[in-house]
């Protein structure tokens, strides 16, 4: 299940899950990933698109997106 759909995400990086009451903080890149996950983009798509927005290599981005999603999983958000 992709719980990211229901998250209230504010621009300053504060995330609130209205179904569980949990809250999280993230940074700008984390926000970018979350917003794309909400739109059901795959991790590969996310990496490719973010590659165009940020100064970073695709390889580093792929690793980071995978790790970020891993981390969402440990929080039960994915």
């Amino acid at each position: 299940m992709n719980r990211s759909q229901q998250l209230a995400i504010s621009e300053n990086g504060f995330i609130f899950d209205p179904t569980t009451g949990e809250s999280f903080t993230t940074n700008q890149t984390g926000l970018a990933i979350l917003n794309r996950l909400k739109k059901n983009e795959s991790s590969m798509e996310i990496a490719l698109k973010m590659r165009e927005e940020f100064e970073v290599s695709l390889e580093e981005l792929e690793r980071d997106v995978a790790d970020f999603i891993d981390h969402l999983r440990t929080y039960g958000l994915m």
Partner: peptide, 11 residues
């Protein structure tokens, strides 16, 4: 509101 909490957590 959640706002003070949000501010203190992010800023």
């Amino acid at each position: 509101d959640l706002q003070p909490f949000q501010e203190i957590m992010t800023k």
